[in-house]
Design a binder for these strands. Structure first.
Lengths: 148, 148
DNA sequence: GCTGGCGTTGACGCCCGCGTCAAGGTCTAC
DNA sequence: GTAGACCTTGACGCGGGCGTCAACGCCAGC
């Protein structure tokens, strides 16, 4: 199998395959004419790479899985190094999700406050209502926010 | 105030400030000797930028907030364009969090399966227990997984 | 023998938010 | 006058995962 066919069957591009080879991730035999020659086994390796990538693994993080398959193990994650990568990735994901949720909470709070203030101003302008100090008790929160 | 002092007071670097100016985000007056000259108001703008950046806003996304302050509004988010950016960012965050949680679930599942298989093999090797077909019913799930 | 579709290597581009270096100008203090 | 702390512009680097082009080789069909 040549590079174009492998790429097509795996749903990727020849450029990516050449890049993986450059990283030593997916080495290829060579035919007499210099063309890269791949086997069915390479398709498995490649699918392993793509699957992990879809889950946010970097190429270097897929290496243990690929080497595990190359070593003849039944699955890419049949080796301790792969399990370790799983664990690291899970804790990364947890940390990332936590951070995003904190950020989301902050942004949501700011958005709600800004909308309240807008509505208060609109109502004030529309009704010419008296501006009372106790109408905007969020000012302190805002200053705290801006100091970050 | 010159660039170094502003950078220090805002907890950033001169390089960042020059970059913001290059983007037209934080323009600076010039002193007679060509040095950039900033005022207290610029410190507010800069803090607005940094705060938003900490929440994952790209520099271009901070622009409406900065322009809002420059226009003399009390807060960076006192303008409709800023509120729109808030809304977009919130939906981006939601989407991102959802994706990460889905990924986390997939990875976690794979990890659990891989560990079960490892333990099963270890137990099998240790006790020389007979290898029964019904001992590894997860094979189908795995094939489905690899086809993705 | 010519066209077209494969393949090869090499090199630069992209995105973003700067870091870092180079080569110089400006101002203050001693 | 000179050291040193600041400032200026310009340019390249980085990280990750390739896209894209250039310039060429190989092979099949007409």
């Amino acid at each position: 199998m040549r590079i174009g066919e492998l790429a097509k069957r795996a749903g990727t591009t020849t450029r990516a395959l050449r890049y993986y080879e450059q990283l030593g991730l997916l080495p290829a035999r060579r035919a007499g004419n210099g063309y890269r020659a791949y086997g069915e086994e390479d398709l498995r390796l490649l699918r392993q790479i793509r699957t992990l990538q879809d889950s946010g693994f970097g190429l270097e993080e897929t290496r243990p899985f690929v080497e595990c398959l190359q070593a003849g193990h039944p699955h890419g994650d049949s080796c301790p190094a792969s399990l370790e990568v799983y664990r690291r990735k899970l804790s990364e994901l947890d940390e990332c999700i936590d951070r995003l949720q904190e950020v989301r909470a902050r942004v949501s709070e700011q958005y709600a406050r800004a909308e309240r203030e807008r509505d208060a101003l609109a109502a004030g302008a529309a009704t010419e209502a008296p501006q009372c100090e106790w109408a905007a008790p969020a000012a302190l929160d805002r200053d705290e926010w801006e100091k970050r």
